[in-house]
Structures are given as structure tokens and as C-alpha cells.
Design a binder for these strands. Structure first.
Lengths: 221, 221
DNA sequence: TTGTAGTTAGTAATTGCTTACTCATTCGCG
DNA sequence: CGCGAATGAGTAAGCAATTACTAACTACAA
């Protein structure tokens, strides 16, 4: 990989100029590793490359991690910790309208997914590499949204505002639609998705879905 | 990778038992390579592994391909040739109903995507590996469906049966929803998608979408 | 004898990882 | 206060194994 961007330590740190403290270095390594693992996958990212991108020798990686695999798992766990969508969902009003619920979910997925492309790319990398963290990352990324919408759809059916659709299939479908937008923007962006606009996408797609599940006349668009 | 499945040649072929003809061997190598590249990606798949899975030595690979990269490009091109959805779309009646159009597209994507998981996995592998074939495979996999639905939606708007939704965004959203099902079944199947049922998915999701874009009262469910 | 399909034994380069060492800073003791 | 020891962050050099790939050779059928 050419043109590796080297993140060097700050000047005036502990001792020699350019040196980082141990924990600073560890954080840097994890940050740089996340980027490279997300872009190239686990195997295609070499420890030489990781070290070079951090501006240190390979041995430094092994001062902080037992091996490449532990570094990868650490990256995945940290990314998982960053992706906690539950507080956001819990902050939504419990009597949220159907339209607002779908809009909020779509907006959040797009905000997070587009704001931090590494999430989805690391999920792919972890899944392909067969990492045990992959499933956790997958579930932490999707499950809260799916559960939230499933609940809201069930309540809508109970209250007569939603047709008897399958709540699980419907929630998954909508989450899938939004995640596909994220996937295209993050992974396939050079294949013709440079024109993606979040607001346009939400404005167009959310009403389609909400009208599609609503009992006739119950929900205005 | 343990437990590599070896495809040995047939007994009673040319000359020595177990030997294949040149073209048979080439086809076998491509088939086996498709499977391994799809599962592990380009870099993580070694030529040693490829040869072992074919039951030959590595040098045989180089009797048929100039190198690993050429083999990969060959795999991608062949898969692209296998994925030709245009004939199917062209076989659909030109006055197809909205519901039938969406249903046909969803059915086809699911049939192909689930019937041949390698398509999507190779697309991912090619994209991550930065292969020039990746964009072609991406477009050949998605563009025909997107174009077809976009056209049908435009006609629906013109004819007053579809609300003034954005045809491109809407088509992409629906294709995305279906492709996400395929992605989940193919890549994330061990994370809780073993229960996917194609007919249920279509029966639930297609009407939602069609009702969502239809002018009120124009389309029954 | 020739052609075909294959193998063996190798190459140079790369990989993940280790170890002995360096150097600057800090600390503690006399 | 000065000096030596300890510490922390890092490097250079190297390891064994693996990698993509090659060249010379083998064996058998036609």
C-alpha cells in the first residue's frame, strides 16, 4: 500500500521528542489499526504496514499486544463500545409516531454508518476473517434498531394503525434498506454513489415504508 | 484453513488415472478458486491452498494462469458472465403490473443471490482487493434491476398509479432491501438468519413497498 | 518419439514475531 | 547536588515459516 500516512507522536512528550507515553501509543496503534483493518481486511494488513503507519518499528506493536490477532480483537471491541445506539433509542418518546420512529431510526443509522465508515467495514473484515467478535459487532450494530422498530410495529398493529404485517420481517427489511445505503456509500462509493444525500433518501424512503404498512387513512404523508 | 476439500480428477481420463485434460483442469481451478476467493478474499487465499484444494501442485496453477491475480480476474469475469439478469428482465411483459414487477425483481435477486452466494461474496472480495473488475461486477449485479424498476416507477408516475416519489432513490431502496436479505443470508447467516424464508419475505415486503408508492386506491394488496 | 499433464525442488521476498540492545529520562541515595 | 541505577519507549537485526512463483524433470499414452 503506497502513500501510507504516518501519525507521529507529539513533540515534547516524555523524554525524546516524538515519543508517546505507553497508553498514548497504544491508543494510536488501535486507531491506525482500525483504519487499515477496515480498508484491507485482517490478512492483507501486515504488521510492517501497521508499524509504518504509526511511525514506529514492528516491535512496538508487540510491546502493547500479544499478536496481530489480539490487536484485531481489540479494535473490534473498541469499535463495538463506540457503537451504542441504545441510549439514543431510549431517548425517543415512548409515544413516538410511526413516521417519526422510522425517520429516527433511518437518521441514526445513516449518521453513524456514514459518520464512521469503519463500523461496517470492520464488521465485514471480522466476518470474513472469522473473528468471534464479528457476531457481537453485527448484533450491536443492528439488533437495537430492529428490536425497536419491531416493537413499534407491533404496537401499531395492536392499536389498529398498522396492517398485519410481520413485524420482524418488516423491521429487518427497513433496517436492511438503510444499511444498504450505508454499504453503498462506504464500500461501493466509487461505483456511482457519490451523489447520495441523506435527507433526500430519508424523505423519499421513510414515507414509502410507513404508508406501506399503515392502515389506509391512518397516517398522513 | 483446515479440512480443505480436494476435488480430484476423474479416473479414466487422459493417460494416468486422475488426470484431467488441460481445459478440464482449468475449469476446475477456476471453480475451486471462486469458492476460496469468495470465502476468504484474495490475499488470504494462498496458491498453496488453491492447489491443494484442486489436488495438484502449485505449478499446475501456473500452467494455466500467469499468476494469482490473473486467476482472480478470470474468476470475476466468469462470474460476471454467469450473472446476466437482462434476459430475465426482458422476458417480463412490458405491461407488467407494479406488484408483479417488484415481486419479479425481488424473486430474481433472491434466487440468484441465495442460489449462488459466491456472486455477492466475490463482489465484496473484489471491492476490498481493489480489483478493476469489481465495479463491473457490481453494476452487472445491480444496475439492470435498478434500471428496470426505475423505468417502471416512472411509467407508474406518468400513468397516475404511482405517487411522485424519486424513481432512482425508490428503485435503489427496494433493491437495497432485497440485497440486504441476501447479504444477511450469505455472510451473516451464522448470526441469526437461518430462519430466512424467501416466499415469506417477498409476501411481506413487496406489498409494503408497492402500497407505499402507489396512489391511494389504485393498487390492491 | 512426442506431447501432455503433472511433480519436485527450488527461488527471492515477505510474513508474524522475538531478542538483545540503545538512549534519554527519572529517581534515589550518599 | 551529583552520580549511578532503574525505567520506559523505542530500534536493529534477526528468526522460522510462508508466500507467489519458476525451471527442470517425469511418466504415460498415443
Amino acid at each position: 500500500m503506497k502513500g501510507t500516512k504516518i501519525e507521529v507522536g507529539r513533540m515534547g512528550g516524555p523524554g525524546r521528542a516524538g515519543r508517546l507515553t505507553g497508553s498514548e501509543r497504544r491508543r494510536q496503534i488501535v486507531r491506525v489499526a482500525a483504519s487499515l483493518f477496515a480498508e484491507k481486511g485482517f490478512v492483507a494488513t501486515t504488521t510492517r504496514e501497521l508499524a509504518a503507519a504509526c511511525g514506529v518499528s514492528e516491535a512496538v506493536i508487540y510491546k502493547h499486544f500479544s499478536g496481530k490477532e489480539e490487536l484485531f480483537e481489540t479494535v473490534l471491541r473498541q469499535k463495538m463500545a463506540e457503537v451504542d445506539v441504545s441510549p439514543y433509542l431510549e431517548s425517543l418518546p415512548s409515544d413516538i409516531s410511526l413516521l417519526d420512529a422510522f425517520r429516527a431510526v433511518a437518521g441514526r443509522i445513516l449518521d453513524i454508518g456514514l459518520g464512521d465508515p469503519l463500523i461496517q467495514k470492520l464488521l465485514l473484515a471480522a466476518t470474513i476473517a472469522g473473528s468471534p467478535e464479528a457476531q457481537k459487532l453485527y448484533l450491536s450494530w443492528r439488533q437495537p434498531f430492529t428490536d425497536f422498530l419491531e416493537k413499534r410495529i407491533r404496537r401499531g398493529i395492536d392499536q389498529g394503525e398498522v396492517r398485519p404485517v410481520d413485524p420482524v420481517l418488516t423491521a429487518r427489511a427497513f433496517i436492511g434498506l438503510v444499511n444498504d445505503c450505508v454499504l453503498n456509500c462506504n464500500l461501493y462509493e466509487r461505483f456511482g454513489f457519490g451523489d447520495f444525500n441523506k435527507e433526500n433518501s430519508i424523505s423519499n424512503n421513510v414515507p414509502i415504508f410507513v404508508r406501506g404498512i399503515a392502515v389506509d387513512g391512518k397516517i398522513g404523508s
